[in-house]
């Protein structure tokens, strides 16, 4: 136990070095991808398209930041995509019932947190495997969304509710500064609060964290609740973007988030990674996906490419790390 305190700063420093390297590589790739798609598509560089791009990946930013917290603890959340649909449904229903945007916001975020709390209790308290529990809530939340919407979309006309996801200042969607704000807030939480240190501790070594009295069980619960809350915010943005709530929204969003987070250098095994990496990962991944959509790629080919990207990144990471270890 005594070595943890002494060795931690040194190891952290080394990890940051390799992460910094990775961020530089990511920035390079982002530039290359932008240039590539810019050549392939004349509209890519227009300010309007950049606004559309950022708006379309705003939800991915939020969800991926939640996923980063979870993956730092060594977990996974397969339910976020379904949760976005469910939370959106609850929010829209609450909104139409009361005609108060504030109630709608609160309902959406609370609904997201509720699914997150189920995940958290099963994973943190009962210590069941994260992918199994979240696979169950993946079905549950999607099912509840379908029930709420009765498998049909609901149009939303409340301007205040749509503001966050739909409004733009010129070519700048309102949601971009909002995402930046969330990023800052979550960074403070992760790097400047005891909770953030608990997150790293739970992911680095659950048993050690437990012995040291850092209550990793409780940390896990809150991490999933946080992810749920971000899914709720994402739901509000999604509804705002298309002015309607839809039961099939966010399908496979969790997959995109996992890929983006891994792309950003967060370890699958917990304890290693930073929010900045996730931001870069989402940007790169978002540019690729957006480019595929703009160039009219077959959606099934897109899925194949997505699957290969995830596999490729995980493979590359593992091989590089193994080589370093030798």
């Amino acid at each position: 136990m005594t070595t943890t305190t002494a060795a931690a700063p040194a190891r952290r420093g080394k990890a940051m070095d390799s992460l910094t390297q990775r961020y530089l590589v990511l920035i390079g790739l982002i530039v290359i991808a932008s240039v590539g798609f810019g050549i392939a598509n004349d509209n890519f560089y227009s300010l309007a398209n950049i606004g559309i791009l950022l708006r379309s990946i705003a939800v991915l930013f939020l969800v991926s930041m939640g996923m980063t917290f979870i993956m730092l603890t060594g977990g996974i959340d397969l339910s976020v995509g379904s949760n976005v649909a469910f939370a959106g449904g609850v929010g829209v229903i609450a909104l139409t019932a009361t005609d108060s945007a504030l109630v709608g916001f609160a309902a959406a975020v609370l609904a997201g947190m509720a699914i997150g709390a189920i995940n958290g209790v099963f994973i943190g308290r009962l210590r069941l495997s994260a992918f199994m529990v979240t696979l169950a809530t993946f079905a549950l939340a999607r099912g509840l969304a379908l029930v709420i919407y009765d498998a049909d979309s609901i149009n939303v006309f409340n301007g205040a509710f749509l503001w966050l996801g739909g409004q733009s200042w010129g070519n700048m969607p309102v949601v971009i500064p909002f995402v930046a704000l969330v990023f800052v807030a979550l960074s403070v939480l992760l790097y400047r609060s005891p909770f953030g240190r608990d997150v790293y501790a739970a992911g680095s070594n659950f048993n050690t964290a437990f012995v040291l009295g850092r209550m990793p069980q409780r940390t896990l619960v809150w991490v999933y609740v946080l992810s749920g809350a971000l899914a709720g915010l994402s739901a509000i943005i999604t509804v705002g973007r298309v002015s309607s709530g839809q039961p099939w929204t966010g399908l496979y969003l969790e997959f995109d988030a996992i890929t983006a987070v891994i792309l950003g250098g967060t370890s699958l095994f917990g304890g290693r990674g930073r929010l900045l990496g996730t931001i870069l990962g989402v940007l790169l991944y978002g540019i690729i996906i957006n480019g595929l959509v703009l160039t009219g790629t077959n959606p099934y080919l897109q899925n194949l490419i997505k699957g290969l990207i995830l596999l490729g990144v995980v493979l590359l990471d593992t091989l590089v790390q193994r080589r370093k270890a030798q």
Binding site: I262, Y300, L301, L304, I305, L310, L311, V314, T318
Partner: peptide, 23 residues
């Protein structure tokens, strides 16, 4: 051989299989 977590490997295979089906 590469000691990757099974759920990540098979999750990406899920997508590859779905994509291939549609192609």
């Amino acid at each position: 051989k590469l000691r990757l977590p099974a759920f990540i490997v098979t999750l990406s295979m899920l997508f590859c299989a779905q994509g291939l089906s549609g192609l």
